[in-house]
Computed example of a mutant assay.
Amino acid sequence: MNIIYFLIGCSVLLALIFLAAFFWAQRSGQNDDLYTPSMRILLDDEPESPEEK
């Protein structure tokens, strides 16, 4: 029965770590722009200039 209490404690601790990581990601702006990356694949690439070759 003691192992059940230990496992519940570990799972709660792990859930709190993931919750803290989620709030950190939100606060640091990880999910600010969700639209541009999905549209970038649809845009044409700019032609290479002769200086880059």
Rank of each mutant, 00 (worst) to 15 (best):
M1D: 10
M1P: 00
M1L: 15
N2F: 14
N2E: 15
N2P: 08
N2W: 05
I3F: 10
I3G: 08
I4P: 05
I4V: 08
I4A: 07
I4D: 11
I4S: 13
Y5W: 13
F6K: 14
F6V: 07
L7A: 04
L7T: 12
L7M: 03
L7Q: 09
I8F: 02
I8W: 05
G9S: 06
C10F: 09
C10Q: 12
C10N: 05
C10K: 03
C10I: 09
C10V: 09
S11W: 06
S11V: 08
S11F: 11
V12Y: 03
V12L: 12
V12C: 05
V12E: 03
V12T: 03
V12G: 00
L13M: 15
L13Q: 07
L14R: 02
A15W: 15
L16A: 02
L16W: 05
L16I: 02
L16P: 00
I17F: 12
I17Y: 06
F18I: 10
F18N: 14
F18G: 14
L19D: 07
L19N: 02
L19G: 09
L19T: 07
A20R: 14
A21P: 01
A21H: 03
A21W: 01
F22P: 09
F23T: 13
F23N: 13
F23W: 07
F23Q: 08
W24T: 09
W24P: 01
A25M: 07
A25H: 04
A25K: 05
Q26F: 10
Q26G: 03
Q26I: 11
Q26P: 01
Q26V: 04
Q26M: 07
Q26W: 14
R27A: 04
R27M: 03
R27T: 00
R27I: 05
S28A: 12
S28T: 14
S28Q: 08
Q30F: 08
N31H: 10
N31S: 04
N31R: 06
D32W: 00
D32L: 02
D33R: 01
D33L: 11
D33V: 04
L34N: 15
L34D: 11
Y35V: 12
Y35C: 00
T36E: 00
T36F: 02
T36P: 01
P37E: 03
S38N: 14
M39Y: 08
M39R: 11
M39C: 05
M39K: 15
M39H: 05
M39A: 08
M39L: 15
M39P: 07
R40Q: 04
L42H: 00
L42E: 00
L42P: 01
L42M: 05
L42C: 05
L42D: 02
L43V: 08
L43M: 09
D44Y: 08
D45W: 08
D45H: 14
D45M: 14
E46M: 06
E46T: 12
E46V: 13
E46W: 03
P47A: 00
E48Q: 10
E48W: 09
E48C: 04
E48D: 09
P50W: 10
P50S: 04
P50V: 11
P50F: 05
E51S: 06
E51D: 07
E51N: 04
E51P: 01
E52F: 06
E52N: 10
E52T: 13
E52P: 09
E52W: 10
K53R: 13
K53L: 12
K53G: 12
K53H: 13
K53Q: 12
K53D: 11
K53C: 11
K53S: 07
